[in-house]
């Protein structure tokens, strides 16, 4: 079993929000893409792609927080996902240089309320 640096969990039908903050370096103008898959190296298409937005301050309530991106999986999208264990990473590209983050584990649990 692959060990991941961190893990996140959310329920189906729940809005899932993560953030990727730029602790060092200049990534202003870079393009960030976040996606979910079954496992690293899975050749199947990405299960879901998070909608990313660049923020001058990752924590919008803290003007001293570093810049970064927020990644959001809308509730209607997470509704379509199956429960189970997945991985997620981010791909950042600036001026042809690509940085791939380490994957983090994501567990999607079955919901109780509002289940179809």
């Amino acid at each position: 079993m692959t060990a991941f640096a961190a893990a996140a969990r959310f329920s189906r039908g729940e809005t899932f929000t993560v953030a990727l903050r730029i602790a060092a370096g200049d990534l202003a103008g870079a393009i960030c893409r976040m996606a979910l898959k079954r496992a690293p190296g899975d050749s199947n298409p990405e299960l879901a792609v998070l909608e990313t937005t660049y923020l001058d301050h990752v924590d919008t309530g803290d003007l001293t927080s570093p810049p970064g991106w927020s990644g959001t999986l809308a509730a209607e999208v997470s509704e379509t996902l199956p429960a189970g264990h997945f991985v997620m990473d981010a791909r950042v590209e600036k001026l042809g240089v690509v940085i791939q983050t380490d994957p983090v584990a994501v567990e999607i649990t079955e919901r109780v309320t509002g289940g179809a």
């Binding site: 903050r21 970064g68 380490d102």
Partner: peptide, 27 residues
Amino acid sequence: MAEAIVLEWVLPGATTAVVTAVAGPPG
């Protein structure tokens, strides 16, 4: 992007779950 780049995940349920992506000059 010749300088070092450090990215950190901020995941729900954890205050700051750090997953570092460090990048140097390509290659």
